[in-house]
Amino acid sequence: MSKRDWDDAFANMAHVDGSEKLPGLWSERAAAYRQGSVRIDESLAYGTDARETFDLVWPDGPPKGLAVFVHGGYWIRLDKSYWTDLAEGARQNGWAVALPQYTLAPAARLTQMTQQIGAAIAQAASMVAGPIRLAGHSAGGHLVSRMVCEDSPLPAEVLARVAQCLSISGLHDLRPLMWTQMNADLQIDEAEALRESPALLRPIAGAKVTAWVGRAERPEFIRQARLLALIWEGLEADTKLMIEDGHDHFSIIEALKQADSPITEAFAK
């Protein structure tokens, strides 16, 4: 048993005042966005499982390409319906934005979720031509980083279109999660941690990856961002690290709704 309190290391809500109200706020704002004038194709299937669906948010004109945002929630909670409004910044920049969801633990293991996100992106890519840009938050940062590893589940023709990967507060070395209480649901073992941790894998040749994290986040998330950027730089990926002042684990994604914010520029400018 580890002597470090890994549950506290990953306990974002416990260290952000008022965070217990955030899921309700996210849900309300996303629902209001869906009721607006933006064209959104909801719950498009990419598989047969009930959660194997994605929403596709369209720009006003012909899309310049596909932007994908993968949600977080430690692989055990939340779904695409909480985040629809986060598509707005990329949408205003002319991108069609896919928001996939995936089967949660304990019903699925991380290995299955990786395959699901690959299938979701491939399906969305069949509907939108042009370059592909990936972004994900927290657990979603892990999943989009896995898409640009050498053993990516993406078909070669889809992977060749991926122009950028943005991991926001992403988890890139899964081994510490084995020491947490949530691993009762995740069921990560050493073999899966080695197989599914982006920082322990090789990126595809020419991968362009940005690890973005808030300076007010838990230190472990800053370490995880540094880890991916540093290790993949040594494997000749084009990596960038952004530690943004004034943001915690939850406020860090808010500016994705703005067309001209730095984080939107890194995603889909």
Rank of each mutant, 00 (worst) to 15 (best):
A9R: 12
A11N: 11
M13A: 14
A14T: 01
H15Q: 13
S19K: 02
L22Y: 14
A30H: 05
Q35D: 12
G36E: 02
V38Y: 15
V38W: 13
D41T: 12
E42G: 10
S43H: 00
D49W: 01
L56D: 02
P63L: 10
K64G: 11
L66Q: 03
A67V: 00
A67S: 04
V70L: 06
G73P: 00
Y74M: 13
I76W: 04
D79S: 14
Y82M: 07
W83I: 09
W83P: 03
T84S: 15
D85C: 05
E88V: 04
R91G: 01
A105W: 03
A108P: 07
L110K: 10
L110Q: 04
Q112G: 12
T114E: 14
Q116K: 07
A120G: 03
A129P: 08
G130S: 07
P131I: 00
I132S: 05
G140F: 02
H142F: 03
H142N: 14
L143Y: 02
V144D: 05
S145G: 12
S145K: 02
R146H: 03
M147D: 07
C149T: 13
P153H: 06
A156M: 07
E157H: 09
E157S: 12
A160G: 14
R161M: 02
R161V: 04
R161Q: 10
A163C: 12
Q164N: 15
Q164F: 01
I168S: 12
I168M: 05
H172Y: 09
L174M: 13
L177K: 06
M178K: 09
Q181D: 14
M182Q: 12
I188Q: 10
E192N: 10
R195E: 15
R195Q: 14
P198H: 07
A199K: 11
A199Y: 07
P203R: 11
P203V: 09
P203D: 07
I204V: 13
I204E: 03
A205Y: 01
A205I: 01
A205T: 09
V209A: 15
T210Y: 00
V213P: 12
A216L: 11
R218T: 08
R218E: 10
R218A: 11
R223V: 08
R223I: 06
Q224D: 03
A225H: 08
L230K: 15
A237M: 01
K240C: 15
L241D: 15
D248P: 07
D248V: 02
F250E: 08
A255K: 09
I263S: 13
T264G: 14
